[in-house]
Amino acid sequence: MDINGENALKFFGKMTASISHELKNVLAIINENAGLLEDLCAMAEKGRPVDPGRIKTIAGKVIKQVQRGDEIIKKLNSFAHSADELDCDVDVNDILMLVTGLAGRIALVRGINLETDQMTDPVIINTNPFLLETLVWLFLDYAMEAAGEGKTVSVTAEKQHENAVIRFSGLKGLAGMQPDSFPGDSEKALLAALNATAATDAVAGEIIISFAS
């Protein structure tokens, strides 16, 4: 397997592990609320009245978690289908929304707030969607480290002189990072495969990926 294949596989593993962890939490909350309903039924059977409003509140919590689980599974489904085609037109905004959505739990655990501003205009490029997602994740992973705990990392896509650009902003700790360590071999291989270049601006606290048109 080549380095990009390894990167993609590691990315797949990281995201699916995070999603399964989040789904476990959804199931755990549904489990506790179902258990609470059982507890209240058992009390009612012993003659202690149960407030219907209490039942309604518990049902509402279960519905909320089902909706949460459904959103997680929709993201997982989009993620899975992004490997369907090796070369197609994609809106970079959609890729950013998907990757930041998948990485939401990881960011939360690391104390990072992720922001993705959905631009009005689509930023279309012809590329390998799964490798692009892998590239975005590797840079996002580094960007979160560069931002530091408690900070906000903003990820946006835009067109600049006909070229698509992805910008990671809010990386105030970038100046203190080892300049030789990033981009590493993994990132360089993905950049080459996607015909892209990366530039780091420690003063502005930004990393910019540019895709050749």
């Binding site: 755990a28 909350i29 506790e32 258990g35 507890d39 009390m43 919590k61 978690q65």
Partner: peptide, 14 residues
């Protein structure tokens, strides 16, 4: 997960 711990606490108190 607030909904998890709060519900679990209630069930334990019962």
């Amino acid at each position: 997960e607030k909904e998890l711990v709060s519900t679990l606490a209630e069930r334990l108190s019962l």
